[in-house]
């Protein structure tokens, strides 16, 4: 746990000093909104359509973060140093997943209000609590699966390709659930701000299963 915190702090400090990943993710998200505006030829969108645009945009931006996740370790020998240290290997999984989660949260802090400003027809304020719950669970799924996939991809030759190619199908059920949960929230006539409990349960189950799976297999990805 302490190791994970140290690693996490290292990653966050690195990101704060270099500002490599999160600004790029935000930029990509904003550009994607513009593409959707022209692609759909609509000034405002709502409901399920809005949910689809939001999820697709966040997914594209998240993929950037997933691809960058282990690059510093790979390029500067961080893996070797970590493997030499007498610490629990799972700390790496925990730290990287937490780091990715924080990156995604930072992305959404900018991208979701921007979405409300640029594209969303209904006001963003009433559905916000529900949306935060849905996005938090979705981020958890992306963080866990993204870390796992990134750790697989980093040692392959076509690593920028393999990561998304494996990650996207693995994420699909979580993305379906996120889009379906966010859809009713973004309607004009939102009776209540709470998302359907069914989708939150599916997302939570997905998070749980993949967290356990990742914990079980992650050691094998580091062993050398």
């Amino acid at each position: 746990m302490r190791t994970a915190l140290v690693l996490l702090r290292k990653d966050l400090r690195l990101e704060l000093r270099t500002l490599e990943t999160v600004p790029a993710m935000v930029l990509l998200a904003l550009v994607t909104f513009i593409v959707f505006h022209f692609g759909l030829d609509r000034d405002t969108i709502a409901g399920q359509e809005a949910a689809g645009v939001l999820v697709a945009t966040l997914l594209f931006a998240a993929m950037l973060g997933v691809n960058r996740l282990f690059v510093a370790e790979r390029e500067q020998g961080g893996f070797d140093a970590f493997l030499l240290a007498p610490v629990d290997r799972s700390a790496m999984l925990l730290a990287k997943a937490a780091g990715l989660f924080i990156f995604l949260a930072a992305l959404e802090v900018v991208a979701v209000p921007a979405f409300g400003l640029f594209l969303l027809g209904p006001s963003l304020a009433p559905p916000l609590p529900g949306l935060i719950a849905v996005l938090a669970l979705a981020d958890l799924a992306i963080a866990v699966i993204g870390t796992l996939v990134s750790a697989i991809a980093i040692h392959t030759r076509a690593r920028d390709l393999i990561g998304p190619v494996i990650g996207l199908p693995l994420l699909l059920p979580a993305l379906i659930a996120t889009a379906r949960a966010a859809g009713p929230l973004l309607r004009f006539t939102h009776a209540a701000g709470a998302p359907p409990g069914k989708w939150l349960a599916v997302l939570a189950l997905y998070d749980l299963v993949f967290a356990l799976l990742a914990y079980a297999v992650f050691d094998f990805l580091l062993e050398d």
């Binding site: 059920p173 379906i176 599916v202 189950l205 997905y206 799976l213 297999v217």
Partner: peptide, 23 residues
């Protein structure tokens, strides 16, 4: 080793995916 990790994760994904899509 990596292919095995993938096969395990993807094997577990099969039933999960069916639950999610069916819902």
């Amino acid at each position: 080793r990596y292919a095995s990790v993938f096969a395990i994760v993807a094997g577990a994904f099969v039933p999960l995916n069916f639950i999610a899509v069916r819902l």
